[in-house]
Design a protein around this nucleic acid. Structure first.
Lengths: 208, 208
DNA sequence: CGATCTATGTCAATATTATAACAAATCAGA
DNA sequence: TCTGATTTGTTATAATATTGACATAGATCG
């Protein structure tokens, strides 16, 4: 596993993203303080793990009361915000693509969805969940124009590899792939496979 | 991390699920043999890792030629098939739910999707992607009747917790949760959160 | 038939991650 | 203000996972 510049282990970093989400949730519920063991239960890990993670980022809570939700959220947020926000495009505005847009919304910290693409001209020109949909032949020019560096692939399996290559060719360095095929890309492109079928198979295993 | 009965580490087990998928893909492309470093590249890990995993399950390839795709797939499949297949229900037949049904298809090894549920009576009674959709008030009776033990949650965030509890109450032991809220459930229920927003935020981090 | 090349099988070393344990600190209540 | 209960901060320890290295074995070619 590679290390990032700030000396925070990648796994901790990933958990921090989870903590931020949970803290926002807690804040919205009006919670003022939270204990390490509570965060742990929500994040599916242990109290020691949470405390260790927070120690690593240099956050201090207070005994008895726990961690102030708002200050901790702010701290984590500040830390994660050091990374410049990603500019995202979605390719494939079919059922899944539209569902993703609607579901994710457009207000994610560190992430802005700027465009959608589809090969079906029926779907282009429209605005879906606040995101404009362009024809896929404009992919390269729009990606460059909008400074997009992260792609979401919600296209049929057969098209995934080609689209991925086109994205990578114009400077996209991260891809979230919902198509159930492995992508072959240069290793400087970070690919995260969200294979729902795989997830199901895996949980079916653990569940026993 | 817990160990399963067959002494194969959970992480290896999860990678085996990935390998199976990749091998099926390779087989469908007509590939007869595959090298550890090729599988590694597809699975996003190293050749040593692959060899070690296959060593653990006691599979033997041949030097020079590598691993026979078909025999290896069969071996992994046989091993994973020891677990009884899971019987799955999807709750929430909105955009995301329908997209999941259509996307996942119904032919997953070890997994059968038997029912969908929705609160909107407009959507019930129909068959979506081969799966019958029932009104959500029949949740408990149908889950028992169909022997369902795994649930997919694609409901709005506000309803997720309640539905999850109802599922757990009638014997569901695994939940794949697409709602962006943490579920509080008894620990004998395995929950896997598929928070697409989180995924995006995480990849936005790694991408730097 | 032997030399060579390539990829496996495996163990040891390393790195990483998680757990446990405990001292220090804070608050509440008497 | 002292006592006790409780939770943090941190270190030491243990468990786990990954990597590296190399002997071994099959295939190919002269």
């Amino acid at each position: 596993m590679k290390q990032n510049k700030s000396d925070i282990p990648l796994k901790t970093m990933e958990r921090l993203v989870t903590y931020r989400r949970l803290l926002q949730y807690l804040a919205s519920e009006g919670r003022a303080f939270v204990f390490s063991h509570e965060l742990a239960k929500l994040a599916n890990n242990t109290a020691a793990q949470v405390r260790r993670d927070l120690m690593i980022i240099g956050h201090h809570g207070s005994p008895i009361r726990g961690y102030g939700v708002r200050p901790l959220a702010a701290h984590v947020d500040r830390l994660l915000a050091q990374h410049e926000p990603s500019r995202v495009a979605l390719v494939g505005a079919g059922n899944l693509g539209r569902a993703i847009l609607a579901h994710v919304g457009f207000q994610l910290p560190g992430v802005t969805i700027l465009a959608a693409f589809d090969s079906d001209e029926e779907r282009t020109g429209r605005v879906i969940a606040g995101v404009r949909c362009y024809p896929v032949r404009e992919l390269e020019s729009r990606v460059v124009e909008l400074g997009i560096n992260l792609g979401i692939l919600a296209v049929p399996a057969a098209e995934a590899q080609e689209v991925a290559e086109r994205l990578a060719a114009v400077g996209v360095t991260g891809i979230l792939n919902f198509a159930p095929v492995p992508l072959r890309l240069p290793q400087d492109v970070v690919v995260d496979e969200v294979d729902i079928g795989l997830k199901l198979e895996r949980i079916a295993l653990c569940r026993q």
